[in-house]
């Protein structure tokens, strides 16, 4: 049996790293839901495209001979954010904007259609096989070690990769919180969230604001894609579905529409999943995530940090 506290710490670190990925994607769901009230079901596919752009850029950089890790990482992140943002923008422009004002279900079905379309688009272009990649960042630092009862030592370590993921996530979340709370764009977004018609009357360019919201969400999802790729080392065209649903769960758990809620929800889902895998069975970790979604929706539909939503006639 492992040493309890160290094992706990290990799982916590795993959970927080996983939670960063969910949190980054969940922001995209929560921003879009807040502003136009639809579940962007294809957001998971945007994340998947981000991961694919990252792997292609990594491989191309390798062929070009750029192997200095910090430079390669920066190029990959920029490339992935740029390309994926264009996908996010196009998605909104082509599939969602014409349906604004239509019944909610129509928009959701379009989003599901878009999700199936993008999955198969990537499958056709890049093949159905899983794509493995060599570890990009290796090594780590030892946090603590302790004697095991059987004489060995149990080492809790934070790999450099995990440290970079955490720092990256914190930086991005800070930047985006500042954008939402301090800039004219953020003000326009919050205005649209509260009352789109009134915002339009007061001179906010609603279409542009919504487009930029999708771009922001896609950029964050693409970073999550890059992180997922270098953390887990394999991707395939189907990876966006499950991660996307769990990130949506995170957004709901945190209170959909709330930015800090999305981060909190993401971390919680990541930690719960890591602990479930660590202490119970790894096979049922997805059931745990879905179970939480159901429980949250039944008992606290507004999530942890959400505002109550009254349905009016």
């Amino acid at each position: 049996m492992q040493n309890t506290f160290e094992y706990f710490l290990d799982q916590l670190i795993n959970g927080v790293t996983l939670g960063s990925i969910y949190g980054l994607i969940a922001i995209g769901y929560t921003l879009v839901y807040g502003i136009i009230g639809m579940i962007n079901f294809a957001h998971g596919e945007i994340f998947m495209i981000g991961a694919f752009v990252s792997i292609i850029t990594f491989l191309t950089l390798g062929i070009m001979g750029i192997t200095w890790v910090p430079l390669a990482l920066v190029i990959v992140l920029v490339m992935s954010m740029a390309v994926t943002s264009v996908y996010g923008w196009t998605l909104e422009r082509v599939a969602y904007r014409p349906l604004r004002g239509s019944p909610r279900l129509a928009a959701l079905i379009t989003a599901i259609g878009m999700s199936i379309f993008l999955q198969n688009y990537v499958q056709l272009l890049q093949g159905a096989r899983t794509k493995p990649i060599q570890p990009v960042i290796t090594g780590g630092m030892e946090l603590m070690s302790s004697k095991m009862p059987d004489g060995g030592t149990y080492v809790v370590s934070l790999s450099y990769l995990q440290a970079i993921i955490l720092i990256l996530t914190i930086v991005l979340m800070t930047v985006f919180t500042i954008i939402i709370t301090r800039t004219p764009l953020g003000r326009a977004q919050r205005a649209c969230e509260q009352d789109r018609k009134m915002a339009a009357l007061l001179g906010v360019n609603v279409d542009r604001t919504i487009s930029l919201t999708f771009v922001m969400g896609a950029a964050l999802a693409s970073v999550a894609g890059t992180i997922f790729l270098i953390r887990y080392g394999v991707i395939d065209f189907f990876v966006g579905f499950l991660v996307g649903v769990k990130a949506f769960t995170a957004a709901v758990l945190g209170g959909i529409g709330s930015l800090p809620g999305a981060m909190l929800g993401g971390l919680l889902i990541g930690i719960i999943e890591a602990f479930w895998s660590g202490y119970f069975t790894v096979e049922y970790k997805d059931v745990a995530a879905f179970g939480i979604l159901v429980l949250v929706l039944i008992f606290r539909p507004t999530g942890l940090l959400g505002k109550p939503d009254i349905e009016k006639v």
Binding site: L108, V245, V287, L293, L297
Partner: peptide, 28 residues
């Protein structure tokens, strides 16, 4: 029974979750 009072799109996601849960249980 527990989820039908949810609004349309939430219901959609929860039913999706149930579908996946049953599949995962069958698988494991």
């Amino acid at each position: 029974f527990p989820v039908l009072r949810l609004r349309g799109d939430y219901l959609a996601i929860v039913t999706l979750g149930f579908g996946e849960m049953i599949r995962i249980i069958l698988l494991n």
